[in-house]
Nucleic acid binder design. Structure first.
Length: 342
DNA sequence: AAGGCGTGGGT
DNA sequence: TACCCAAGCCT
């Protein structure tokens, strides 16, 4: 049966593979390891439709490892703004520079695993897709497809070792990269989380969850804790057509990104505590809401347009060019709300 | 080794 | 609405 699953899925993939910019077109050059690696980093916890415009922008501007490695940090972080999980961008740049130093990206899973920002999934994916090696590629799609194929009752994340072993058992020696991409295409388009389209699925006859009549109940997962609510204040301080920005520290939330000055993000509304300068702040009537991975944030917006004469620590950025500052989405939302309020 | 770490889409 | 989820990695 394992042989049958791989062969059936690869036949389906040959007819139904999605046309994605990091995949080699039929008759085109072989897959470019740089493009495969870059796409895999961008795709970590991020959907294909979100990644595509960023991938096009990055590859047009930085077509290979050397070009990316030579770029300044701030330019790369700014280009990444809005894509989220900003540690990926810092690790991506460190990885590009390591690859430039090595001369080429390694072509084995074990060596790939040592690169910054390359974990078990990405190492296996690059080894298989870019270099044709047999590797067991397990992402969220594969976890879902496999847990349904075998109707696994053990909940995630505890079931990960079992899922990896089962994925290994159905991974073919040849075309492991296509097999991995086929599993992910299947998971993204047919074996979806909420309403799987089982009648279109090439693996329907091999699927224990389909046979059991409730495929959407797999994979079983342990419940997640509710997100806590936090509150804060964002400060818009403008002088002579320029607004005050800050550079956030490299570690932690939104690390290494330019940002509006903020006070602390705490359990109850803090007022203007943490303001970058002691002036008369005007609190706008409505603030912004933003949801991060592990907490929900309601922020008041404090505005001061009267010039203070004392020196202020930070980055003065032209208000007319604020879109080019590379602000994370939470701050872009604030900028838009402030613009509408004035 | 469990929790920190973004954002947008889907239901 | 308020969740859940998405081509995970790092510490």
């Amino acid at each position: 049966m394992p042989d049958n699953i791989a062969a059936t899925l690869l036949d389906w993939y040959d007819l139904n593979a999605r046309d994605l910019p990091w995949r080699a077109r039929p008759g085109a050059n072989a897959t470019d390891p740089y493009r495969v690696w870059l796409s895999e980093v961008m795709l970590q916890q991020t959907q294909v439709a979100t990644v595509i415009p960023y991938f096009e922008k990055f590859t047009a501007r930085w077509p290979d490892f050397a070009a990316l490695a030579a770029e300044e940090d701030a330019e790369v972080m700014s280009a990444w703004a809005g894509l989220g999980y900003y540690a990926r961008a810092r690790n991506m740049l460190a990885c590009a520079r390591e690859v430039a130093r090595l001369g080429a990206i390694p072509d084995t899973e074990a060596e790939l695993l040592r690169l910054p920002g390359v974990g078990g999934y990405t190492a296996a994916a690059v080894a298989a897709i870019a270099f044709g090696r047999r590797a067991v590629v397990v992402d969220g799609n594969v976890e879902r497809v496999v847990s349904r194929l075998f109707a696994l009752s053990d909940p995630l994340p505890g079931a990960k070792p079992q899922i990896r072993a089962l994925t290994d058992s159905i991974t073919p020696d040849a075309r492991a990269g296509d097999f991995a991409q086929a599993m992910m295409d299947l998971g993204a388009t047919i074996c979806t989380a909420r309403s799987p389209r089982c009648l279109l699925c090439p693996l329907r006859s091999a699927c224990a969850a389909f046979a059991g009549g409730a495929p959407e109940t797999f994979p079983v997962k342990t419940k997640k804790a509710a997100k806590p609510q936090r509150y804060g204040t964002l400060f818009w301080f403008e002088r002579d057509g320029q607004v005050l920005l800050v550079q956030r520290p490299d570690k932690g939330l939104l690390g290494g990104m330019r940002a509006l000055p903020t006070g602390p993000w705490v359990e109850s509304p803090p007022g203007i505590e943490g303001a970058p300068v002691a002036v008369e702040w005007r609190i706008l009537g409505s603030g912004i809401t933003h949801v991060f991975t592990h907490f929900r944030l309601d922020c008041a917006l404090a505005v001061a347009t009267i010039g203070a004469q004392e020196a202020v620590q930070g980055i003065w950025w032209p208000v007319a060019e604020i879109e080019s500052a590379g602000l994370p989405t939470v701050f872009a939302k604030a900028v838009e709300a402030i613009r509408r309020a004035r």
